[in-house]
Amino acid sequence: MERILAQAPDFFTPGNVGLLLEAAGLTLAMTVVGCGIGFALAFVLVYLRQTPGLWALPLRLICIAYVEVFRRIPFLVVIYLVLFFIQTVSTDASLFTIAVIAICLYAVAYTADIIRGGIESVPQTQVEAARAMNLGRLQTMIHVVLPQAWPVIVPPAIAFAVSFIKDTALVSQIGVFELTFRGKELNNQGFSGILVFGTIAMCYFILSFPLSLLGQYLENRLATPRGQRRARKLRRA
């Protein structure tokens, strides 16, 4: 305990604090960019997975297999696979890029199921009405299905991204200068492990906790407008 107190002034120097702030920014940036792109690609995956017709069967199977396989592989293994695969095709990809690609590949698999659930929550009759009016599959998706699926999709998608802030700790292993990497570095410099990893844990907590509250708030807010409308209707009836 004395050791921690003795080290604290040396540890919380402006230089170290700046380093940690920067690292926290990188952690957040990786998560946002990776999950954001992953989320967008997941829409494509879900859309392809719904391609009708016998000819598209292999396509559908690939989409299903992608989701199933990636949900069964540790993120750490995905990171290594992406790292070494990218390094065999290109030597000038930054570690940040590699980390973002790994996050993205993972996020696609997890958010695809969230998106599919949201889309399936829209009654099939809405789709039929649109198709009978000659709206194409994509137009039906954009104008009719997604606007109604949105409130079901957004809260769990945000919850996923927020929980993934923590999982990005694993990319410290390939040398991205994010929070966990800086923590190990400071620990190696001789600072107390309790002090360093306690501080790093607090940094993650400060990133994750408010955002998870925001996610819960959004869930409530997105869920209400329909309920209010229904309540108005019930009052009239």
């Binding site: 009759t125 809405q126 039929e128 009405a129 649109a130 009016m133 104008h143 009719v144 109604q148």
Partner: peptide
């Protein structure tokens, strides 16, 4: 053009 038993109006519009 078809009109459905359950109307099937687009709820988001």
């Amino acid at each position: 053009a078809i009109v459905f038993q359950q109307y099937n109006l687009f709820q988001n519009m």
